[in-house]
Each structure stands twice: as structure tokens, then as C-alpha cells.
Design a binder for these strands. Structure first.
Length: 216
DNA sequence: GACCAGGCACATC
DNA sequence: GATGTGCATGGT
């Protein structure tokens, strides 16, 4: 029985061989990445893209500019992403946080120590663990592993964690077993999500062809 | 027409 | 502490 570290490294190699590098997160700036992280909560990325296009077309992919927009207008712009009233409030919660903590300056935010910053992000209403970690890793380049529903299923199916393991437990599995490497964490999470989309959806090749079978 | 998608907060027991 | 529910759009 290979160690959990070896299993995780084998998964990674299999995914990288099958799919190649991901170049994540799609987004031109840390702010855009963060907006995407909030908008994609329980939502298909293609719907998020429509909302991002609307924001850019309105010249609002900028924290100070976006904060100046009335919440109802913001909600209409992000409507294609679903849960639009809820997400408009969540985006504004984050913008208020950003103004208070660093005057809308992401590079100042990135100076802060990771676990302290994580706590601060989690205190924003509408930012849970996955969203906070996505912001830390993909917008701020902090070495934090992002866990999602796919990651949990993968670990369950392969007996790496118990069925009832919570977010932190799955996260610690990866972070304890792997070296602390922003690039590795970035690529690993991206590959898991891409595998779920490209192998495990019914219109794609069957699940038996998935490089991680059994995955979903 | 049902089911799903890169969650989260809150109510209720 | 566990479990259930609302939030909403667009693709398959």
C-alpha cells in the first residue's frame, strides 16, 4: 500500500500527463480573480464569464469603481452568474473589507501573513473556506491548498480520508503530504476541477477513461 | 423537465 | 453538532 504522499503525487502525475498545465486562474488581475471566486460559488464557470464580461464592458472591473455602484445595479450586471442578489451583497461585503484593510490595494493585502489573512477573509460574510483559499492561492499567491467538492470525492473514493472528513482535514492531507509550493497547489486544484469537467460529465468520454478512476 | 454547476449563511431540532 | 433550506441562472 503506497503512502498517502505517494498516492497524491501519482494522481498529480497522471493528471498532468493527461491534461497538461492549466495556467489558472482565468483572470487578468488579482481583483478579477477574486470577483470570479465569489461569483463561481456553486455556479458553472461559463455563467460567471458572462457576468465578468458585463462588469468589464461597464468599466467596473476595479474595486473602487465597483464599490461606487449601487447594489441593485451591480446585481443586474452579474445576473447571469445566478444568485445575483446574494452575490451582489457578498461582493460589496468584500469591497468594504478591501477598502477598510488596504484602501483597495491588493498588493498591500498580499504583504500580510497567510493565516492571519485567512481569518480576516473568513470574517467577511459570504466568504467561506473554499472562496477564501481560492483568493489566497490564485489572487495573492499564498501556498494554500483549495479543497472543493471534487477534491473530497476523489479522496473519499480512494480511501485517503473518511467519508465525513471536513474541509480542514482534506486540506491538511494535501498540505501535510506535499511540499509547500504555490505552483504545485495551483496546478493540482486546477487539474482536479478540469478532470471533473472533461472526463466525468456525461457528454464526455466515460468515467472509466478518467485518469483517476474511480473519481466521480 | 429534471439535474447539475469550482458555496455559504442561517434556521431548526 | 448535525441536518435542511434558500439563493437563481444557463447548459445538458
Amino acid at each position: 500500500m503506497p503512502s498517502r504522499r505517494v498516492q497524491l503525487l501519482n494522481f498529480y502525475d497522471a493528471l498532468m500527463t493527461a491534461l497538461g498545465p492549466s495556467h489558472w486562474w482565468p483572470g487578468e488581475t488579482p481583483f478579477e480573480v477574486t470577483v470570479g471566486a465569489i461569483l463561481t460559488q456553486n455556479t458553472n464557470w461559463t455563467n460567471v464569464e458572462r457576468a465578468i464580461v458585463n462588469l468589464k464592458a461597464a468599466g467596473l472591473m476595479d474595486p473602487a469603481a465597483l464599490y461606487a455602484v449601487p447594489e441593485a445595479h451591480l446585481a443586474e450586471l452579474i445576473r447571469p452568474a445566478g444568485y445575483y442578489r446574494l452575490k451582489a451583497a457578498r461582493l460589496r461585503n468584500f469591497l468594504r473589507f478591501l477598502r477598510r484593510e488596504c484602501g483597495f490595494d491588493f498588493s498591500a493585502l498580499a504583504e500580510r501573513e497567510t493565516s492571519d489573512l485567512r481569518e480576516a477573509l473568513l470574517a467577511v460574510k459570504g466568504v467561506g473556506q473554499e472562496t477564501a483559499d481560492s483568493i489566497l492561492l490564485y489572487a495573492l499567491n499564498k501556498p494554500v491548498f483549495v479543497v472543493d467538492a471534487y477534491t473530497r470525492r476523489l479522496c473519499n473514493r480512494h480511501g485517503l480520508v473518511a467519508e465525513e472528513a471536513d474541509y480542514r482535514e482534506v486540506q491538511e492531507l494535501f498540505m501535510d503530504c506535499l511540499e509547500e509550493d504555490v505552483n504545485l497547489f495551483n496546478e493540482y486544484h486546477a487539474l482536479i476541477v478540469r478532470t471533473a469537467k472533461e472526463w466525468c460529465r456525461k457528454t464526455r468520454p466515460r468515467c472509466s477513461e478518467c485518469p483517476l478512476e474511480p473519481f466521480l
